[in-house]
Simulated scan of single mutants.
Amino acid sequence: MKDQFNTALGNLIDKLIGWFNAIIESIPNLILAILVLIAAYFAAKYVSRLVGKIVDKRVEQDSIKSAISRVSAVVVVALGLFIALGVLNLGKALTSLLAGAGVVGLAIGLALQGTLANTFAGLILSFRKKIQIGNWVETTGYSGEVVDINLKDFTLREADNNMVIIPNKTILDNPLKNYSLTTRMRVFLECGVGYESDLEKVQQLTKETIANTFDQVEKPEDVEFYFTEFGGSSINYLCRFWIDAESMLEKLRAKTEAIIAIKKAYDQEGINIPFPIRTLQFDNNLNINSSDSKES
């Protein structure tokens, strides 16, 4: 029994001595690994600020800039950690760490599939020059001013001041009309005049009225005018002209001014804008004293 105890004690002492020698031999590598981690920490702060300045020139959203800066810092720190593990000759630990990170990343990706999709979509939208904060856009049935683009959603302010929050992924998957990409818009105006009207006079008066109302229309010939149909109570036409505008609200204001100006011009010239008329005919007498009613 005593011999067994002495043998076990000797093995334990040998093991401790081996560990001690290994620690002593690894001190230079340990110091180097610590220096690598410290250097990675300061490099991450520098890279984060540098990336932030670069992104600031292309992205207006603070949330996007902060997220990109943090991701760049995490990448630098992770790279420093892997180098430090390699310096310590912990290749197996490094392999296990990478494998574990892959499994965890896969699990997180599956669990947060929708959230990650919106996050990456938000990053893509932030770097698109054709979609900027302040633009007036129309998408998925909504129209309004872009007030925010973050990592989760896309926010519009409609003309009635209501906020519409749309997931970023929905914006990328659907068509988007940006009214602010051009400085000119075409106004479409439909109206009708009575059958007794002089159509050539109507055409010329309408063109002159539009040209006199809007500075952007230099002469009446710049206004497009087409009679479209013989309607139920009027001869209908389509009028089109260009204005300087970057939002749907400006287009609506211009259309309102055009309608008011045309109505005044027609009133002065005695041109009638008819409205639908329904005639009710009561000349069919109903015989309530029929034989059927008497029998009942």
Score class of each variant (00 low, 15 high):
1 M>Q: 06
3 D>F: 11
5 F>P: 00
10 G>V: 11
11 N>I: 06
17 I>D: 07
17 I>P: 01
17 I>W: 01
20 F>L: 07
24 I>K: 15
24 I>V: 12
24 I>M: 07
25 E>S: 12
26 S>V: 04
28 P>Q: 05
29 N>Q: 14
30 L>N: 02
30 L>F: 14
31 I>E: 10
33 A>D: 02
34 I>G: 05
40 A>E: 05
41 Y>A: 11
44 A>I: 07
46 Y>E: 03
48 S>V: 04
48 S>W: 07
49 R>E: 03
50 L>N: 10
58 R>K: 12
58 R>M: 13
65 K>F: 02
69 S>T: 03
69 S>P: 01
71 V>R: 04
72 S>V: 12
74 V>K: 01
78 A>I: 13
81 L>N: 00
83 I>Y: 01
83 I>T: 08
85 L>N: 03
87 V>Q: 01
89 N>A: 13
89 N>W: 00
90 L>E: 04
93 A>E: 12
95 T>R: 09
95 T>D: 12
98 L>C: 11
99 A>W: 13
99 A>V: 14
101 A>E: 02
107 A>I: 15
110 L>M: 13
115 T>H: 04
116 L>A: 09
118 N>C: 10
118 N>K: 09
128 R>Q: 12
129 K>R: 11
130 K>R: 09
130 K>H: 04
131 I>G: 00
131 I>Y: 08
133 I>R: 06
137 V>P: 00
138 E>M: 10
140 T>C: 05
141 G>V: 08
145 E>K: 15
150 N>H: 05
151 L>W: 01
154 F>E: 09
155 T>V: 15
162 N>M: 11
164 V>C: 07
164 V>G: 02
165 I>E: 02
172 L>D: 04
176 L>I: 15
176 L>C: 04
177 K>R: 04
178 N>G: 05
182 T>C: 01
183 T>N: 09
193 V>H: 09
195 Y>Q: 06
202 V>Q: 05
204 Q>Y: 06
206 T>L: 06
207 K>C: 03
207 K>Q: 14
210 I>K: 01
214 F>Q: 01
216 Q>M: 11
217 V>F: 08
218 E>V: 13
218 E>D: 12
219 K>D: 08
222 D>S: 08
222 D>Q: 12
223 V>I: 14
223 V>L: 04
224 E>Y: 13
225 F>P: 02
226 Y>V: 14
227 F>N: 04
229 E>H: 07
230 F>T: 13
230 F>V: 08
230 F>R: 14
233 S>W: 12
236 N>M: 10
238 L>C: 10
238 L>F: 12
239 C>Q: 11
240 R>S: 08
241 F>L: 02
241 F>R: 01
241 F>Q: 05
245 A>M: 06
247 S>R: 10
248 M>D: 02
249 L>P: 00
250 E>I: 09
251 K>V: 08
253 R>Q: 14
254 A>S: 15
254 A>G: 12
257 E>P: 00
259 I>K: 14
259 I>M: 13
259 I>Y: 12
260 I>A: 10
262 I>W: 02
264 K>G: 00
266 Y>G: 03
270 G>A: 07
272 N>H: 00
273 I>C: 05
273 I>K: 11
278 R>E: 10
279 T>K: 12
279 T>G: 01
280 L>D: 03
282 F>A: 10
287 N>C: 05
287 N>W: 05
292 D>A: 10
293 S>I: 15
296 S>L: 15
